[in-house]
C-alpha cells in the first residue's frame, strides 16, 4: 500500500478538479463565458501529453544506452498514453473552437482550418502515429526497439516546433500567439486568475498521474506477455 500512495492522489486530484472546477468562481469574460472552465480539462490533456512524451523520450535514451528491452516497453507504452492524451486534447479543442472561434469573432470554418495551432498539433500527433506504424513493421525485436527508440527521439524533437514554436511565430487564434493579448497562458502567473490557479495546477498533476497509472497497467501487462525475453 505504501507504494501506491500516488494512485490515491491520481483518484483524489481529478475528483477535486471536477468538483472545484465546476463550482468555484471563474472570471467573467466575453466570448469565453463558462467555457473558460475547459482550462481544467483541455489544457491539462496537452500538459499531460507533454509529460508522458517526455518520460517516453527518456526511456528511449535509456534503451539506447542499455539495450534492455524493458526500457523499450516503457518507452512505447508512455508514447501510447501520450498520444491518447493528445487525441483527447485535440477533440476537446475542436469542441471549444466551435463555440469561441467560429461564432463570435466572425471567423469562418475556412479560417479555423488554416489555424497553425491545429495543423501543428495534428502534424505532431501524426509523427507519433508513424512511430506506432514503424513499431508494427518489424519482425526482429531488437532491431524494432533500436530503430523506434531513435525515431522516438526524433519525434519528440519535432513536437516542439510543431506544437509550440511555429504557431507562436506565425500568429494564431489560440492563446499564446502574438495576435492575442496573452504571452503564455496557463503558465504565466500574471495571466491566470488566482482562484483558477488553485484548480489548474492540481488538475495537471491529477490527470497526468491518472495517465501514468493506466500506462503502468499496460506496461505490467506487456512485461507479463514478454516474460521470457525481458529480464
Amino acid at each position: 500500500m505504501q507504494k501506491n500512495w500516488w494512485k490515491i492522489l491520481a483518484i483524489l486530484l481529478p475528483v477535486y478538479t471536477i468538483v472545484a472546477g465546476f463550482l468555484l468562481d471563474v472570471p467573467r469574460l466575453p466570448i469565453l463565458n463558462e467555457t473558460i472552465r475547459n482550462l481544467y480539462f483541455h489544457v491539462c490533456m496537452w500538459f499531460g501529453m507533454m509529460i508522458l512524451y517526455t518520460v517516453s523520450f527518456v526511456y528511449s535514451i535509456k534503451y539506447l544506452r542499455s539495450s534492455n528491452l524493458r526500457h523499450d516497453i516503457f518507452a512505447s507504452q508512455f508514447a501510447m498514453m501520450g498520444s491518447f492524451f493528445g487525441i483527447l486534447g485535440y477533440l476537446t479543442g475542436v469542441l471549444w473552437v466551435n463555440v469561441t472561434w467560429i461564432t463570435d469573432q466572425h471567423q469562418s470554418l475556412g479560417s479555423v482550418l488554416k489555424e497553425p495551432k491545429l495543423i501543428g498539433a495534428a502534424i505532431g500527433l501524426l509523427i507519433y502515429g508513424a512511430y506506432f506504424v514503424l513499431r508494427g513493421s518489424f519482425t526482429d525485436i531488437d532491431k524494432k526497439a533500436r530503430v523506434t527508440a531513435v525515431y522516438n527521439i526524433f519525434a519528440f524533437a519535432l513536437l516542439f516546433p510543431c506544437v509550440w514554436i511555429i504557431p507562436r511565430l506565425v500568429g494564431s487564434l489560440h492563446p499564446g500567439a502574438p495576435g492575442s493579448d496573452s504571452g503564455n497562458p496557463a503558465l504565466d502567473r500574471k495571466d491566470l486568475d488566482e482562484t483558477m490557479r488553485l484548480v489548474f495546477y492540481p488538475a495537471v498533476i491529477g490527470w497526468t498521474l491518472l495517465g501514468t497509472w493506466l500506462t503502468t497497467l499496460n506496461i505490467r501487462l506487456e512485461l507479463l506477455k514478454n516474460k521470457d525475453i525481458v529480464s
Binding site: I11, I18, V19, F22
Partner: peptide, 15 residues
C-alpha cells in the same frame, strides 16, 4: 458534477 463524478468513479473503479 454528480454525473461527471459517476463517470470518473466508474472509470477509476475499472482501473
Amino acid at each position: 458534477v454528480a454525473v461527471c463524478l459517476t463517470i470518473l468513479f466508474g472509470l477509476i473503479g475499472y482501473a
